[in-house]
Design a protein around this nucleic acid. Structure first.
Length: 880
RNA sequence: GGGAGCUUAGCUCAGCUGGGAGAGCAUCUGCCCUACAAGCAGAGGGUCAUAGGUUCGAACCCUAUAGCUCCCACCA
């Protein structure tokens, strides 16, 4: 093995080998239980960012874990055509080339889009591979490939024929930059400082006026009424009269509607049905005309009269100026206003009445709500269930048409003769009713319409494929909380509706990656972290474990370079530990655990390993990858490296070949099992080291069996003991060593100075102490160690522990007064402990109600501390 | 306006069914001891946001308050 950890040297090679061997491939196998995950398809617009890296790492950890656990595991990857996002980018590119999509025409434009897909979709896949993701690339899907498109058509036609999809003239969210309708979910609301303008509308009969308050004066041009509350006495007499709209001079009615809040503004509201969702509803109730004043780029149209051609912001200014100079503007108040923005381009969206396609949601939502309420689908962590239910229960009909070219073109054909609209899975040229010529709808579907079908369209639905039969419903979905509404909920109702089955059982939600100051990573802040750059510098494993550590319960994760460095160091630690074990294995025979006598330390490390396996298994089953990583980190560093490897050195450096064989066998076993335990999280380094092991239990670590949580498992047997007794014993030996080290450090004794140690076992610990002498001598800087019955003659330093007292001749160290002071301090501590325990036992309530085990434990502590107190008093006395 | 979550060491976070406050990083001290200075050994550091309550016992359960974060929502 290389002396230093250089991930660049092997990550590519390891990954290529996995691919060559076909380990990622999944195929129905009746003898195995299936486990499947579909990957949330990244958009083809960009490149892998740190959020994807987190998403992929979590999925890969789960997938690798399940695969090692013996499941036939499918992780199905793919990419999303990302209708708007991609089209916007391509349009930008065309613009920079001095052309436009209109100039190009639909067909050529789509050619360009597919070229784009090849280029950028491919790049993301390459980047995912660098991360080590183990998905079945042969089954890669793309939301616009034949498979998925077929499913989209099937679903659309079915729902169209059932009346679940309808076309209607309704108010929708219009993005003037993307020049398309977007769904409610795609609008982000933002509080914005604005004004509330009070405008005077005169009565046509000249008998007075009404003052309305508005945040959008420019839409005045489209007003078709003014509304007041029916019970508002201020305006009661006005209802039914008409007003003359300023600037436009149109006569509009005063109507009464409950929608109006009496206490807000002036209690009178201008009604613009074409440009406000509420006004649209009011308009429907009162049968008001709808006057659209905007073009699709949000400039004013011919309905705006003299304001025609202005953009909406200039129009507002001009209209306010005009109102002011004509004396209509009576007051301007400041006002905090909620403004909707496009989630893609962030432009201010305009509510506009327009003819669009919608999916009826009410009927779809109900089973989707029930499935979660009945726990058929579980959210992890649970709190996201509420977010989901709330979203689902309040969802409005879903606007699915987009005025774009890149996407699934709506499969509806209009007859030019009889006007009939026909939805068809295959393109048609003639009207099925009258045989007339037809033309297809120009719009495409919302990109989420196809991703909603992802868990089953990718498996071949609507065909009854073997894959679908075996792997669907999928098991787990892992994604960020930001797309629960967009995606997760839509997959749930789509799956239930079209396959009759839930699409997955567990929805694991994680947070987003933020920078070290807790800010979202964004291009404008320039605080993004490029995963590929990190991989180049520190390796994929360090990136993976750094991402996954500290993430728990769906919370956001803060990224910091210190953290990354910490885990890079951990990788180095693993590397060197493995190197140590392998180096010392030369000339040794590796034996099966159980075929030779285990020492106390052997049993201890095996016990710790077993505990670690149990915890990691439990955590992985709960998708707590971060906490599992912490357990592994702790075991490897604090138990295996800091203690067991150190213990093992006395045996390894001895001349006794059998002892060496035994200890190297334990080292090798623990190393192998630990690598397997860690493999799902840090696949590369574990694979590279595993390949070097003489005791491999599989061709490759990724297809080796995950450590069992029933005990220590070898080919020869399963040792079910958890070694609890040995764990406790060894820990008390370690306490002796730690106490001696602490004392030495306290007394400023240099590490290289070795001393004689006299050790007096306490209670019935003689055998334990006797068997641990060599460990204590080696790890507590002893030059010699001797078992004694009492404190040796002369002046000594006394070190107290639970199982033994250790004496070190004073002359070996330095200062008598210092030692007395130290002992006095310890005496204080011991006395306060006695007082604490006594106080507890003096509490009547405690003695009466606390569990007996707890009371006994307190009593035992008093006995122990009293003993220590006596020793300390004697030692102090002896020094004086 | 409604809902959710968070508040534990200087920083990032653990803390299972209530039973003596933990880790990593940072800081300080001492160490190149034949795996690792990307390392080893040791140490300091906390009113568990605040105020009440339940309990023999509360970081943990209940109530209120404050601060932060996020989601949802049509008062123009």
């Amino acid at each position: 093995m290389n002396k230093t950890y250089e991930p660049k040297d092997f990550e590519h090679r390891i990954y290529d080998n996995w691919q060559k061997k076909g380990y990622f491939k999944a195929a129905p196998d009746k003898n195995k239980k299936p486990f499947s995950i579909v990957m949330p398809p990244p958009n083809i617009t960009g490149q892998l960012h740190i959020g994807h890296a987190l998403d992929c790492t979590m999925q890969d950890a789960v997938v690798r874990y399940k695969r090692m656990k013996g499941y036939e595991t499918l992780w199905l990857p793919g990419t999303d055509h990302a209708s708007i996002a991609t089209e916007v980018k391509i349009v930008e590119k065309l613009k920079s080339e001095g052309t436009s999509k209109e100039q190009l025409g639909r067909e050529k434009f789509l050619e360009r889009a597919f070229e784009w897909k090849e280029q950028y979709g491919g790049r993301i896949v390459e980047q995912q591979k660098r991360l080590g993701v183990s998905c079945d690339w042969d089954k890669s899907a793309f939301t616009m490939d034949e498979r998925c498109s077929r499913a989209v058509r099937e679903v659309f036609v079915k729902m169209f024929n059932e009346g679940m999809i309808y076309r209607g003239n309704r108010i929708i969210n219009w993005c003037p930059t993307c020049k398309t309708a977007i769904s409610d979910a795609e609008v982000e609301h933002e509080s914005t400082d604005s004004h509330l303008w009070h405008i005077k509308y005169p009565l046509t009969d000249g008998s007075g006026e009404i003052i309305i308050a508005t945040t959008r004066p420019e839409t005045l041009l489209g007003d078709t009424a003014v509304a007041v509350h029916p019970s508002d006495i201020r305006y009661k007499s006005y209802v039914g009269k008409t007003l003359r709209l300023p600037l436009v001079n149109r006569e509009i009615p005063i109507i009464a509607d409950e929608y109006v809040e009496k206490d807000f503004g002036t209690g009178a509201v201008k009604i613009t049905p074409a440009h406000d969702p509420n006004d649209f509803e009011v308009g429907k109730r009162h049968d008001l005309p709808i006057i659209n004043i905007l073009n699709d780029d949000a400039t004013l149209n011919e309905n705006a009269g003299v304001y025609k051609g202005l953009n909406r912001y200039d129009a507002r200014k001009k209209i306010l100026d005009d109102l002011n100079s004509l004396g209509y503007l009576v007051k301007t108040e400041s006002h905090l206003n909620n403004v909707g923005h496009c989630y893609r381009c962030n432009d201010t969206i305009e509510p506009i009445v327009s003819k669009q396609w919608f999916v009826k949601m009410k009927e779809l939502a109900k089973p989707a709500i029930d499935a979660v309420k009945k726990k058929e689908i579980r959210f992890i962590p649970k709190r996201f269930e509420k977010a989901y239910l709330h979203w689902m229960e309040n969802t409005q009909d879903w606007c699915i048409s987009r005025q774009l070219w890149w996407g699934h073109r709506i499969p509806v054909f209009y007859c030019e003769k009889c006007g009939k609209a026909t939805a068809s899975i295959d393109d048609i040229t003639a009207c099925p009713q009258c045989g007339g010529k037809v033309h297809q709808d120009e719009d495409v579907l919302d990109t989420w319409f196809s991703s909603a079908l992802w868990p089953f369209s990718t498996l071949g639905w609507p065909e009854k494929t073997e894959l679908l039969d075996y792997f669907y419903p999928t098991d787990t979905l892992i994604t960020g909380y930001d797309i629960i509404g967009f995606w997760v909920s839509r997959m749930i109702f789509s799956g239930l509706k079209h396959t009759g089955k839930k699409p997955f059982s567990d929805v694991v939600i994680h947070g987003i990656v933020r920078d070290d100051k807790g800010r979202k990573m964004s291009k404008s802040l320039g605080n993004g972290v490029d995963p590929i750059e990190v991989i180049e510098n520190t390796g994929a494993d360090a990136l993976r474990i750094a991402l996954v550590s500290g993430i728990s319960a769906g919370g956001d994760i803060k990224w910091s370079s210190e953290k990354l460095e910490g885990y890079r160091n951990f990788m180095n630690k693993i590397w060197n530990a493995a190197r140590f074990v392998l180096m010392n294995a030369e000339g040794c025979t590796i034996k099966e655990i159980g075929s030779f006598r285990l020492t106390l330390a052997d049993k201890w490390i095996l016990g710790e390993l077993f505990r670690c396996v149990k915890r990691v298994t439990k955590l992985m089953d709960k998708y707590e990858i971060g906490l599992a990583a912490a357990e592994i980190y702790d075991f490897i560093w604090n138990n295996f490296c800091d203690w067991y490897i150190e213990f093992s050195k006395t045996a390894l450096y001895s001349d006794d070949l059998e002892r060496r064989n035994n200890v190297i066998s334990v080292l090798m076993y623990v190393l192998r099992e630990t690598l397997k335990l860690a493999h799902p999280i840090i696949p590369f380094i574990t694979a590279e080291i595993y390949n070097e092991l003489p005791n491999k239990d599989a061709e490759d670590i990724m297809i080796s069996p995950f450590p069992e949580n029933v005990g220590i498992v070898t080919k020869a047997k399963i040792i079910r003991s958890s070694f609890n007794a040995e764990l406790a014993k060894m820990r008390s030996v370690m306490e002796v060593i730690k106490n001696i080290r602490a004392m030495r450090s306290d007394m400023n004794v240099s590490q290289s100075k070795r001393t004689a140690l006299y050790i007096k076992p306490l209670g019935n610990n003689k055998a334990l102490v006797k068997s641990s002498l060599s460990y204590i001598e080696k790890l507590a800087c002893g030059s010699s160690i001797e078992l004694v019955d009492s404190e040796p003659q002369g002046k000594n330093v006394t070190v107290l522990s639970t199982i033994a007292e250790v004496y070190i001749p004073m002359n070996e160290l330095i200062d008598k007064d210092k030692e007395i002071a130290r002992l006095k301090h310890e005496l204080e501590v011991v006395e306060s402990e006695i007082a604490r325990a006594q106080g507890k036992l003096a509490n009547e309530g405690f003695v009466k109600k606390a569990p007996t085990a707890l009371i006994e434990a307190e009593k035992a502590k008093i006995v122990k501390y009293e003993e220590q107190k006596n020793t300390l008093l004697k030692s102090i006395d002896n020094l004086n």
